[in-house]
Amino acid sequence: ELSWTAEAEKMLGKVPFFVRKKVRKNTDNYAREIGEPVVTADVFRKAKEHLG
C-alpha cells in the first residue's frame, strides 16, 4: 500500500464505507501504473476518472 496525503485520505473518507477498501486498492494500483510514489488528491481524481 502506498502513502496517501491527508487531502487524498479526506477524499477517500467521502467514499461509501462498503467500497472504500476496493477504491483504496484500485487507486494504489493506478498510482503505481502511472509511476506515482504517493497518492495525492490529484492522483485520486485521475484514478476516479480513469477507473470510472
Rank of each mutant, 00 (worst) to 15 (best):
V23P: 00
A47P: 01
R20S: 03
A8Q: 00
W4S: 01
V19S: 13
A8D: 00
E49P: 06
A8H: 01
F17R: 10
V19H: 14
N29D: 13
V43F: 05
A31T: 03
I34T: 09
M11Y: 05
T27N: 02
V38S: 05
K25T: 13
E36M: 08
Y30H: 04
Y30N: 01
K48F: 14
S3E: 13
K48M: 15
A41M: 07
G52W: 10
R45L: 13
K46W: 09
K22D: 09
L12I: 05
N29L: 12
K21P: 10
T5R: 02
V38C: 08
K48I: 14
W4M: 00
E7W: 04
G35D: 06
V38R: 07
N26F: 15
V39D: 00
E9R: 11
A31V: 03
V43D: 01
L51V: 09
K10A: 14
E1W: 13
V39K: 00
K14R: 10
E36R: 05
I34Y: 08
N26T: 11
G13M: 15
N26L: 15
R20F: 02
V43T: 05
D42E: 14
N29W: 11
E9F: 09
R45D: 05
F44M: 04
R24Q: 06
V23L: 10
M11Q: 06
V15K: 03
L51E: 07
F17H: 09
L12P: 00
R45T: 08
E36Y: 09
I34C: 08
V43L: 08
N26S: 11
E1A: 13
G52I: 13
L12A: 02
M11V: 04
Y30C: 03
K25D: 12
R24F: 03
R20C: 03
V39L: 02
K22E: 12
A47E: 02
E7T: 06
T40V: 01
K25S: 10
A6H: 09
G13S: 15
F44N: 00
S3R: 13
I34D: 03
E36G: 03
V23E: 03
E36D: 04
A8N: 01
L12F: 04
K21D: 15
K14S: 08
F17N: 07
N29S: 11
L51H: 12
E49G: 09
A47H: 06
V23G: 01
H50R: 10
N26K: 13
E9W: 14
K10E: 14
S3M: 14
K21S: 14
N26Q: 15
K10Q: 12
V38W: 06
L2E: 03
R20Q: 06
V23I: 09
V38A: 06
R32Q: 06
H50V: 11
L51C: 10
F18Q: 11
A47I: 05
G52L: 14
E33N: 09
R45H: 07
D28Y: 03
F17S: 09
L12M: 03
A6K: 11
V39G: 00
E7K: 07
T27V: 15
V15W: 08
K48A: 14
K10G: 09
E7N: 05
V39R: 00
E33L: 13
F44T: 01
I34V: 10
T27G: 02
M11N: 03
G52Q: 14
A31H: 00
D28H: 04
R20N: 02
V43P: 01
H50A: 13
A41R: 06
R32P: 00
E7D: 08
F44W: 04
E9T: 09
V19C: 15
F18T: 09
V19G: 08
K21Q: 15
N26H: 15
L2W: 04
A47W: 12
V43Y: 02
T5I: 02
I34W: 09
T40A: 02
R20A: 04
K25F: 13
V23S: 03
V39H: 01
N29R: 12
P37H: 11
R20G: 02
P16R: 05
V38I: 13
E33P: 01
P37I: 12
T5H: 04
G52P: 08
F17V: 09
A47K: 02
V19R: 13
E7F: 04
R24A: 04
F18L: 10
K46R: 12
G13H: 12
Y30P: 00
E49D: 10
T27Y: 08
A6T: 09
N29T: 11
N26R: 13
E36Q: 08
G52E: 13
N29P: 01
G13L: 15
K22C: 15
L51S: 09
Y30F: 11
P37A: 13
K14L: 12
L12Y: 03
E36W: 06
T27D: 00
K48H: 12
W4I: 00
V23H: 05
W4R: 00
R32S: 05
W4Y: 01
K21C: 13
E49R: 14
E33W: 13
G52D: 13
E9V: 11
P16S: 06
F18W: 15
V19E: 13
V23R: 04
L2Y: 06
V38N: 05
T27L: 06
V15F: 12
E49N: 10
E7S: 06
V43G: 02
K14G: 07
A6V: 12
M11L: 15
V39P: 00
K48N: 15
F44D: 00
T40R: 02
Y30M: 03
D42N: 07
K46G: 07
H50Y: 13
G13R: 15
F18N: 12
V39A: 01
V15D: 03
L51R: 14
F17K: 10
F44V: 04
E7C: 06
Y30T: 02
E49K: 14
A47M: 06
D42V: 07
F17Q: 08
R32M: 08
F44G: 00
M11D: 04
P37C: 11
S3F: 14
P37R: 11
L2S: 04
R32L: 08
V43C: 03
V23W: 11
E1N: 11
R45E: 08
G13F: 14
R45P: 01
N26G: 10
E9G: 04
T40L: 01
H50E: 07
N26V: 13
D42F: 06
F44I: 03
Y30E: 01
L51M: 14
G13V: 08
F44A: 02
Y30K: 02
L2G: 04
G35H: 06
A8C: 02
A47N: 03
N29K: 12
P16I: 04
K14I: 06
R24N: 02
L2M: 11
E1H: 11
D28P: 00
A31Y: 00
E7Q: 07
F44K: 01
L12H: 01
L12W: 03
P16V: 04
E49V: 10
A31Q: 00
R20L: 04
K46I: 05
R20K: 05
A31D: 01
S3L: 15
K14D: 12
K22T: 12
L12D: 00
A47Y: 14
M11K: 04
D42T: 08
T40F: 01
K22P: 04
V38Q: 08
D28A: 07
V43I: 12
E7R: 07
K10L: 13
P37D: 11
W4Q: 00
K14H: 08
P16Q: 05
G35Q: 06
R45I: 11
R45M: 12
I34M: 13
D28Q: 07
G35F: 05
E9H: 06
F17A: 11
L12N: 01
